[in-house]
Simulated scan of single mutants.
Amino acid sequence: MVVLPVRFERSPRLHAMLSEEPHAVGTRVVVQGKRGPEVATVRGEGQAPDPQGRYGAVLRGASTQDLARWEELHRQGEDLKWLLRARARERGLPVKIVAVEFTLDESLVTVSYSAEDRIELGSLIGELRGHTRARVNFAAVGPREQAQMIGTLGACGRENCSSTHLQEFAPVSIRMARDQQLPLNPEKLSGPCGRLLCCLQFEHTQYLDLLAGLPRKNARVCHEGSGACGKVTKLHPLAGTVDVQTDQGLLTGIPAAELTRAPEAPGKGRRPEADA
């Protein structure tokens, strides 16, 4: 018995499946997923199973008949997706049908949809009844999951990370953009899904390490070479330098090693009771 990492069609996430025999990387297999039998692709070498692990099961290698059936169900799901989109527009339902997916035995059809508010979709079930006898399951997905399933291009010109390699959606905050000295422009910081770019988290820990060796923005510092003192106006973490605004003008690209903390003005920071 070996554990194989497999990937389903609409998600890059790897799922561990227990198999009685090894399968080569890139091989299509039929697995028993949470929804039922589905076709997946082997994406890694087999590993020894963990006695405490919980795994799905690889039923068999996908045959020519399995793949032909899977392709037919995929085409049927695409046709139903566009049908449901048209019916939703006719009924004025504020919903977007993202995907319609069948299990290999056609016992279940999952309709993934996106909507801002809770919405009643029972009227669309009748549309499906005329085309399939499968049990219908509606699954709401968020903006990131929608981009993952559909696939889009990012600002870098490549396919978005969520549909190529991300295994989970880690929290992303605007603080990450501030730490990386990026302009706080929503259009430049948002991905096709309308949420903050997932890639902001990729290098955040490195930026935190670089910022640890730099003075804070607006801190008072003095330049050892010129003796001029002023306020830090901008940080350059990758270069290890800062810009300093002094009374004489702006000093740019000053290495952090050449800066010292400016002495406090006389009486600054003293407590009133000390003066008394």
Rank of each mutant, 00 (worst) to 15 (best):
Q65A: 14
L210H: 05
L124T: 02
V98F: 13
P266R: 00
C198I: 04
N218L: 12
H236R: 02
V39Y: 10
P183I: 00
G213W: 08
R60I: 04
E90I: 00
L124N: 08
P263W: 12
R158N: 09
D209E: 15
R220D: 02
T41C: 12
W82L: 14
V30S: 14
S63V: 09
A115K: 07
R13G: 06
R69T: 13
L214A: 15
C199H: 05
E168N: 12
I150F: 01
G249A: 09
G26R: 07
P192E: 06
P183L: 01
R7S: 03
L251F: 10
P143T: 04
C198P: 07
G227V: 01
G46T: 03
R270S: 01
G191A: 12
E78S: 05
T205N: 11
L210P: 09
P263V: 01
G191D: 02
P255I: 11
V42N: 01
A99D: 13
V58I: 15
L80V: 00
R85Q: 15
P5F: 10
V29F: 14
I97G: 06
R261I: 08
V111C: 02
Q47S: 11
G61D: 10
L83S: 10
R69Y: 07
H131V: 03
P49Y: 05
K234F: 03
S107W: 06
R133S: 10
V141R: 05
E20Y: 06
P237N: 04
T252Y: 07
P171Q: 05
R178N: 09
L251R: 00
G157D: 05
A228E: 14
P263T: 00
G249I: 05
P171W: 04
E38H: 11
C161N: 07
H15M: 06
G230A: 02
H23P: 05
I254C: 08
G227H: 05
G230M: 03
R135Q: 12
P49N: 04
Q148V: 06
P266H: 09
G126P: 06
G36D: 09
E71H: 11
L83F: 08
S63M: 11
T233K: 08
G269D: 00
I150Q: 11
P186M: 06
E38T: 09
C161D: 07
H236M: 00
P51M: 04
P237W: 07
S123Q: 15
P263A: 04
N160C: 15
Q180F: 12
L182W: 12
G122A: 13
D117S: 15
V25N: 11
I254M: 15
D79G: 08
N160D: 10
A40T: 01
Q201M: 13
F138E: 04
G44C: 03
V244A: 10
